[in-house]
Simulated assay, not measured.
Amino acid sequence: MNKLQTGCIHLVGLIFIVAIGFSPITSTVAHANDSLYDALGGTDGIEKLVEELLFNVAEDRRIRHHFMDIDVVRLHEKLSEQICELAGGPCTYTGDDMVKSHTGMGVTRSDFNALVEGLQLAMDDLNISISAQNRLLALLAPMHDEIVGR
Results as ranks from 00 to 15, higher is better:
E52K: 15
E52N: 15
L53K: 05
L53G: 03
L54I: 14
L54M: 15
F55R: 04
N56R: 11
V57C: 00
V57D: 07
E59I: 08
D60K: 05
D60Q: 04
D60S: 11
D60G: 10
R61F: 03
R61Y: 04
R61H: 10
R61Q: 10
R61E: 14
R61P: 03
R61T: 10
R62C: 06
R62Q: 13
R62W: 02
I63Y: 11
I63P: 12
R64C: 06
H65T: 14
H65L: 13
H66A: 09
H66M: 10
F67P: 14
M68F: 14
D69H: 13
D69Y: 13
D69I: 08
D69W: 08
D71F: 14
V72P: 08
V73G: 08
V73P: 07
L75C: 03
L75E: 05
H76W: 07
H76M: 04
E77Q: 10
E77G: 01
K78G: 01
L79M: 14
L79Y: 12
L79A: 07
L79V: 08
L79Q: 12
E81M: 07
E81N: 01
I83T: 00
I83C: 04
C84T: 14
L86D: 05
L86F: 05
L86H: 03
A87C: 04
A87H: 00
A87W: 00
G88W: 11
G88N: 03
G88P: 00
G88Y: 02
G89P: 09
G89C: 03
P90M: 07
C91D: 13
C91H: 07
T92Y: 09
T92P: 09
Y93T: 00
Y93N: 03
T94Y: 01
G95S: 02
G95N: 06
G95F: 03
G95Q: 04
G95L: 08
D96K: 14
M98W: 02
M98F: 10
V99S: 07
V99H: 00
K100P: 01
K100T: 12
S101L: 15
H102L: 10
T103Q: 11
G104H: 00
G104K: 08
M105L: 15
M105G: 04
V107T: 08
V107K: 06
T108S: 15
T108Y: 01
R109K: 13
S110R: 12
S110N: 13
S110M: 11
N113M: 13
A114P: 07
L115F: 15
E117N: 14
G118C: 03
L119T: 08
L119A: 13
Q120E: 15
Q120F: 04
Q120P: 03
L121G: 10
L121R: 07
M123D: 12
M123W: 07
M123Q: 15
D124C: 08
D124E: 12
L126A: 07
L126I: 05
N127L: 08
N127P: 02
I128D: 04
I128P: 02
S129N: 06
I130H: 11
I130C: 09
I130F: 11
I130P: 12
I130G: 11
I130Y: 12
S131Y: 10
A132D: 13
N134H: 08
R135G: 09
R135W: 07
R135T: 09
L136C: 10
L136K: 01
L137G: 04
L137E: 02
A138I: 00
A138C: 05
L139E: 13
L140M: 12
P142D: 12
P142E: 00
P142H: 06
H144S: 08
H144P: 00
E146H: 02
I147V: 15
V148N: 00
V148H: 01
G149K: 02
